[in-house]
Amino acid sequence: MFEGRLLQGSLLKKVLEAIKDLVTDTNFDCSETGIALQAMDSSHVALVSLLLKDTGFDHFRCDRNLALGINLQNMSKMLKCAGNDDIITLKAEDEGDTITFMFESPNQDKISDFEMKLMDIDSEHLGIPDTDYQAIVTMPSAEFQRIVRDLSSIGDTAVIGVTKEGISFSTGGDIGKANIVCRQNTNVDKEEDQTTVEIHEPVSLTFALRYLNSFTKATALSPQVTLSLSKELPIVVEYKIEKMGFLRFYLAPKIEE
């Protein structure tokens, strides 16, 4: 059987809110090392990769590798019934066709049990090679969310450029154009408010803003976001999940004709 008990149940709630509108049905791959998920959106332009390590769970047991086929909208509906401070336990039998979610209130005075049917999803996984990216920018996640939202009101594609100065976001549309530059900034009190740029090669790529907007639904997961770019490769937008793993979004670039 598989069982995972997560003291910070809100993390799982936030993960579902971040991916339920991008991916419809996917397998949660459970093994003794934790829970992993890899899925593309319906247009195969974006890819989501989630890792929740077993060590991040208060209790974790997985006797046999299980691929739990789940409709994310339905799982989100059930997780919405959990309180933000609830402990969430996921459970599934090896030969079962359901998954159960148990929510325990902080002082254990309310225990909820939800059971959801599993689906048979034969998903193929893509091999994502380890890459030494030409540019890696870490910045406040709320800042990135704000920039993407603001640019989306002006245009539908963004040119993201990274130089040693910093990272720039540009767009244009019917009403005009916009360009936002965030400089490297390490002289702030809290580390999480820093913007750091690790650059090996200046790089500039073009992306559809509606996907970047969708990725920023994960902002609640981490105060920082890391953007990794390399010429002619998908951008990686990564939200680290403290002590557990990460939620990564890959977005294929738009190639000039």
Binding site: M40, S43, H44, V45, A46, L47, E124, H125, L126, G127, I128, P129, T157, V159, T206, A208, L233, P234, Y250, A252, P253, K254, I255, E256, E257
Partner: peptide, 14 residues
């Protein structure tokens, strides 16, 4: 700007 590429251009099925 430009033509949207697909994920399968960059990452191959395992």
């Amino acid at each position: 700007g430009g033509k949207q590429s697909l994920m399968s251009t960059f990452f191959k099925p395992k």
